[in-house]
Design a protein around this nucleic acid. Structure first.
Length: 910
DNA sequence: CTCTTTGATTCGGTGGACGCGAG
DNA sequence: CCTCGCGTCCACCGAATCAAAGA
């Protein structure tokens, strides 16, 4: 673990500069442990096994409303009671809430008893032994140095160890041991079958309830059919269990008497038998993929220039140049790396497909990007776009119909004889790679995909769709365990791209359903998991302590697991890949996280953490650790997921995100009162949605226009305030005495209480008026011309513009006298007051709209709604509060969540 | 490897500002 | 003169689509 290790560090492990070296010793030196915290005794006592984490300890601190997360360096640390912005603290309470509720039934005891025994055993027996093993095995070979082969061996070993967990071997690898440590009980008899049971159970309850629900609120379908069908299904399903595949296929035919039901639309899979999850289909027929249109060369008069000279390019080179030209006014055109990568690839293309020539055929060597002028191309594209926009509706419609006709065969496939929607059947077109953040490969040329590169996955007996003329498919396979229809490898990162079914398909619906069921299953285990990792937070072994700490972060702050990444990817991190520089510790127990997460999205939050966690992080950052070093130098995501596995089958870090998100949502919705208008309820729903989004750190970049839009809105508000103030002055014109009675009322709003601004605004008003008059004049003239009459003269315009002078005069008068003459036919105080009230209302709604917009300008609600919040929660919300579902789920989401919409009543709980 | 999650980009519909004429 | 209803137009917003990135 000395720094010299770095040199020998195999590249398989994190190759980033200084990252990846193991710095910490295997075991936490008790002296260090003590040194790191004065109150250690108390803290350790507080975290003795069996005592749950104090929910109040973790409260999320979010920096105010300004939206400037970057300024989170010194946020006010809010207390839990300070509820407003603290989804997390709330969540914690919630969590304990459920545990109590949860534990009130048998699961408590069954959990508690073995837990004790497990704890009793652990320190007693194997510890000494395994720790020495750990040292012997590992002291010279840090985890990160393990080569691929070694990892393989270990995997095998750990599997082996698991098999034999009843009789632990003397000599096991650390991982095997880690796996070993978890009590066998955790994957107890119930566990194995668990994964099936809840689904079946859920299915039953859902359909049973369905029958009832239907009777009450009529859906489109006639009640008896639906209810009956549901029932029949369940009864059939239960005993069938063993019948897979074929049986399923037959199942589907059952519904058809009811109507043409053999397409996905009518197939209610959530009422049907589930397959074994391994084989995805029996028969599969589809039309392959749709290729982007071939490149069309530009008109000969459109030429980019090099060094000021128009140049002729081969179609291939022109196409690539066009990719760059299209981005001329995008951010990419200012990104050196992007340009560099583009330029290098483009030069390759030029070399391969004949370089650039001038119009006399003389070769021009392209060597400098700066001498390239893509403007003419850019302008051509812009014009094309405009032209397209300007097309008549009829033309647009025809174009759309044409497009739909071409796409038609690709839209659907036959999946086990059912019509299912295909998702991304279009092959990705060539272009410049738009890697996110500082992706080292951004700007590189993404090549056109040829049919020869494409592998089709299709049923054995199906007709293979014909490849494009003159081409062949790369490969045809019949992989029934895969859900993809087609596949190719992209040239930038050699990533595989798949064509799959649409999210509305039953296949995707099922896996979505399973995802949420898995998250719900976590409820049963979460208390034990939390107890255990809380206990492990003070474990002597560095690895265990790191693992516990990492899991704490994953659970509390919804961090992603943080797999390792290569040098040729953007430098983004998740929990396990956090480095020294990504967290800053602030006494007494604040941690400032600042790093780039998935998609290079900033994670910048200040959290209060458990004291023991704080202490641990401090140890993990202890010298000789330095910037660039892994914070968790002894663990990788797989260790975490291995640990999880013993608690629940299929549990991984991401399940925690789903669980905590849905859990938060449920809690938020439960707190809502069934009062107010639909709009208010909807707003409340969005508030809750927003809390989840913040929890998951779902952001969106403020649109470029955001600030200008805000300014504009603010100006509009000020303009309204000015109008209001003027009306008030008019009241005074009628009833001067009122000023003494209500001096407050007649004072201008603070925002416009500024002579200079008022003067500017008056000028602006005059200017606007002028524009209006001119515009109207022009329009009238146009009409006259159209009707074959002659235009009005310029003098007419002049007279019309005369009112501007009156306006100006009036303003000047008002400014000097401080009075505004009442205008209107029969001006009265009442009339003015009415108008003022109207304006005031406008002002208020605009202000709240602005606030709302500002508030959500950097939070993206969609991602959590689509991927994290169990849709059944939203359905329950709508049913309970009488909010139309369409408010919450737009068409596409209603399709995607059909299974949820049809399977719950208002009493369903996550 | 395979599939899910993710924010950006593009698309398309809507609401509200505006003009106009009728009452 | 004011109000109301209707039509038109375009900014804007949410939805659909896209493809990258992560597990």
């Amino acid at each position: 673990m000395s720094s010299s290790d770095e040199d020998e560090m195999p590249l398989a492990r994190r190759p980033r500069k200084s990252g990846g070296r193991v710095v910490l010793p295997d075991k936490i030196d008790p002296a260090v442990d003590r040194q790191m915290e004065e109150e250690s005794m108390e803290i350790d006592a507080a975290h003795a096994p069996g005592i749950a984490i104090d929910p109040a300890k973790a409260s999320k601190v979010i920096n105010g409303t300004s939206g400037k997360r970057k300024a989170a360096m010194k946020p006010t640390v809010k207390d839990e009671s300070d509820s407003d912005n603290e989804p997390l603290s709330k969540r914690r309470r919630t969590v304990n809430g459920i545990s109590r509720h949860q534990l009130s039934d048998e699961s408590d005891d069954s959990d508690a008893i073995p837990l004790k025994s497990s704890r009793a055993k652990k320190p007693a027996k194997p510890k000494e032994q395994s720790e020495s093993d750990f040292e012997a095995d590992d002291s010279d070979i840090p985890l990160q140095k393990l080569s691929k082969e070694k990892k393989e061996i270990e995997k095998a070993a750990s599997k082996q160890a698991k098999k034999e967990k009843a009789t632990p071997k003397t000599k096991v690898t650390p991982k095997a041991k880690a796996a070993n440590k978890r009590k066998p009980k955790d994957e107890s008899p119930s566990d194995a079958s668990d994964s099936d049971v809840p689904i079946a159970k859920q299915r039953k309850t859902a359909s049973a309830k369905k029958g009832k629900a239907v009777k009450k609120e009529e859906d489109e379908e006639p009640t008896p059919v639906k209810g009956k069908k549901a029932k029949v299904k369940v009864e059939e399903a239960a005993p069938k269990k063993t019948a897979k595949g074929k049986g399923k296929a037959k199942d589907e035919e059952a519904p058809s008497p009811e109507g043409e039901d053999e397409d996905a639309e009518g197939y209610k899979w959530w009422l049907a038998e589930q397959g074994d999850g391994k084989q995805k289909w029996e028969t599969l027929q589809h039309s392959g993929v749709m290729f982007p249109p071939p490149y069309e060369v530009l008109p000969t008069n459109i030429k980019m220039k090099y060094n000021g000279v128009p140049i002729v390019l081969s179609p291939e080179a022109e196409e690539v140049a066009g990719f760059m030209a299209a981005l001329l006014e995008a951010d990419q055109a200012k990104d050196q790396k992007f340009i560099e990568n583009f330029f290098a690839d483009w030069k390759e293309v030029l070399k391969k497909f004949g370089g650039a020539k001038d119009q006399n055929g003389k070769t021009i060597k392209i060597e400098s990007y700066d001498k390239c002028d893509f403007r003419p191309m850019f302008e051509y594209f812009t014009a094309q776009k405009e032209a397209k926009k300007a097309m008549s509706n009829v033309e647009k419609k025809a174009l759309k119909a044409e497009k739909e006709k071409v796409e038609e065969p690709y839209q659907y496939c036959q999946w086990n004889g059912r019509k299912e929607k295909v998702g991304n059947f279009r092959v990705e077109p060539p272009g410049l790679f738009r890697g996110r953040g500082e992706h080292p490969k951004r700007g590189m040329l993404k090549l056109r995909v040829q049919p020869e590169q494409i592998t089709l996955n299709i049923g054995k007996e199906a007709t293979v769709p014909p490849p494009p003329k003159g081409h062949k498919w790369g490969n045809i396979v019949h992989n029934q365990t895969a859900s993809w229809l087609a596949m190719w490898t992209e040239n930038i990162n050699n990533n595989v791209k798949y064509v799959m079914l649409a999210v509305t398909s039953s296949l995707k619906g099922q896996s979505d359903f399973k995802k949420y069921e898995k998250a719900r299953e976590l409820k049963k285990h979460i208390d034990k998991i939390r107890r255990d990792y809380t206990r492990d937070l003070s474990d002597k072994q560095t690895m265990i302590r790191q693992r516990a700490t990492a899991i704490y972060l994953i659970d509390k702050f919804a961090l992603r697991a943080g797999n390792e990444k290569g040098d040729d990817e953007a430098d983004t991190v998740g929990c396990c890949s956090l480095r020294y520089e990504h967290i800053t510790l602030e006494e007494p127990n604040l941690v400032h996280f600042k790093f780039l997460g998935k998609d290079s999205i900033q994670f910048d939050q200040l959290y209060t953490v458990d004291k023991q966690v704080f202490k641990n992080l401090r140890i993990f950052k202890k010298a000789p650790k330095a910037p660039g070093d892994d914070l968790f130098d002894r663990i990788q995501t797989k260790h975490i997921n291995e640990w999880f596995k013993d608690y629940m089958e299929g549990l991984s870090a991401k399940v925690f995100r789903t669980y905590n998100a849905s859990w938060t949502m449920q809690k938020e919705l439960a707190e809502m009162k069934n009062v107010g208008t639909v709009a208010q309820k909807y707003a409340a729903y969005n508030e809750a949605n927003k809390k989840v989004a913040i929890l998951c750190n779902h952001q969106r970049t403020k649109s470029k226009m955001h600030d200008t839009q805000m300014e504009k809105k603010m100006y509009e508000i000020k303009a309204l305030m000015y109008q209001k103030w003027r009306l008030k002055k008019m009241i005074l014109d009628l009833e001067p005495k009122l000023k003494k009675k209500k001096p407050e009322y007649f004072r201008p709003d603070a925002e416009i209480d500024n002579d200079e601004w008022i003067r500017e605004h008056q000028e602006w008003l005059v200017e606007e008026e002028k524009k209006k008059i001119e515009k109207k004049f022009a329009k009238e003239n146009e009409k006259l011309l159209e009707n074959g009459e002659k235009e009005m003269k310029a003098t007419e315009l002049k007279t019309r513009l005369g009112v501007l002078n009156d306006m100006k005069k009036e303003f000047t008068k008002e400014n000097s006298s401080g009075k505004v003459a009442a205008v209107g036919k029969s001006p009265s105080v009442e009339k003015f007051e009415e108008q003022i009230a109207k304006i005031e209302e406008k002002v208020q709604t605009r202000i709240s709209m602005m606030k709302d917009k500002e508030n959500t300008s950097e939070v993206s609600l969609g991602t959590s709604k689509i991927n994290y919040i169990d849709p059944r929660l939203s359905v329950v919300f709508c049913k309970r509060f009488g909010v139309p579902l369409e408010k919450i789920f737009a068409k596409a989401l209603r399709d995607k969540f059909k299974w949820a919409i049809e399977s719950v009543d208002e009493n369903w709980e996550f």
